[in-house]
């Protein structure tokens, strides 16, 4: 009896320690993000600077969207300090650029990478093994190891300051091809044989049979590709000059470099760039977790 009770006590103690650690870690990982959002909601720049170091920074005196959309009731709404991020710069343009570039790259990437993987996994032909090991070898090359020659190349093509310079070089990716390949190679042969006897074309088999069975890997690759492109900084920093094709990360850096810094507006910019992704992440969480796990399989 007594032993049982002490065992129970150990279990409760374990639980308490467990939750304590979990909470401590959660505070550590969340406080900067909460800080970002709460600062962005504080319309009073002086208030932000005054209490930036205290716990009170997490509770703005007044909550408003002024840093986002400006203050329409101000005497002169066109004055910079009365404007929000959306009014004082071409924020809509930057957002459109990022969304456009990322969706084109990810969609075209899903198609091109899965097709190449399908070709390698479902056909036997001369040179197949060489191609597969070649693609595995390419996975070692980090982007930084081709950035400068690629810059020179696209400059010669006259692609600087454009959408295609931010999309086309990043569609095909050996790592994503490899993930698709590993998935397709597991399909039984009978899958396409039955369809071939029915007279279906290879493209039809790929489109109507293979892809619908590949939803888990499609979503994993889409998420990894999306995260990489959305935060991509080094490349657009080199290949975009004007605002026309500038994506969000470069726009953020430019805005951040302007003095005097308006922290409320900066945090509003940062929040608008982050919150949609976080919401997407919370909704598609299961897929996110799987995509990270798949990136660990090598």
């Amino acid at each position: 009896m007594a032993q049982q009770r002490s065992l129970k006590r150990v279990k409760i103690f374990d639980k308490v320690i467990g939750y304590f650690l979990l909470t401590l870690l959660a505070l550590f990982f969340l406080f900067p993000l909460v800080y970002m959002v709460s600062t962005s909601l504080n319309p009073d720049e002086r208030d932000i600077v005054n209490k930036m170091g205290s716990v009170m920074a997490f509770v703005p005196k007044n909550i408003s969207l002024k840093n986002y959309i400006g203050d329409p009731d101000a005497e002169d709404p066109t004055k910079t300090e009365n404007q929000g991020v959306i009014g004082r710069m071409n924020f809509g343009r930057f957002m459109f650029n990022s969304v456009f570039i990322v969706s084109c790259t990810v969609l075209a990437g899903l198609l091109v990478n899965s097709m190449l993987a399908f070709g390698l996994a479902r056909f036997s032909f001369k040179g197949r093994e060489v191609l597969v090991s070649g693609i595995v070898a390419l996975m070692i090359i980090p982007f930084e190891a081709i950035a400068i020659p690629l810059l020179w190349l696209v400059n010669n093509l006259g692609w600087l300051d454009s959408y295609q310079v931010q999309i086309i070089p990043f569609i095909a990716n050996p790592f994503y091809i490899f993930l698709f390949y590993q998935f397709f190679i597991q399909f039984p042969k009978a899958l396409e044989e039955a369809a071939l006897i029915d007279g279906a074309s290879w493209f039809k088999i790929y489109w109507k049979v293979a892809l619908p069975l590949s939803k888990p890997i499609l979503s994993s690759v889409a998420i990894l590709h999306f995260l990489m492109q959305w935060g991509f900084f080094l490349w657009p920093l080199m290949v975009t000059r004007g605002e026309e094709y500038r994506p969000l990360p470069v726009a953020m850096q430019q805005f951040f470099g302007q003095y005097p810094r308006d922290w409320g507006d900066i945090m509003a910019f940062a929040s608008m760039m982050t919150i949609p992704v976080l919401v997407l992440f919370v909704i598609l969480q299961r897929h996110f977790v799987n995509s990270v796990k798949s990136s660990g399989i090598k």
Partner: peptide, 21 residues
């Protein structure tokens, strides 16, 4: 979910927020 959120946040944003801190 909470622990993974910083990873989903773009490095440029992370850098800006931490500069403030």
């Amino acid at each position: 979910t909470a622990y993974f959120m910083p990873t989903v946040t773009t490095m440029v944003v992370v850098s800006v927020v931490w500069t403030f801190m």
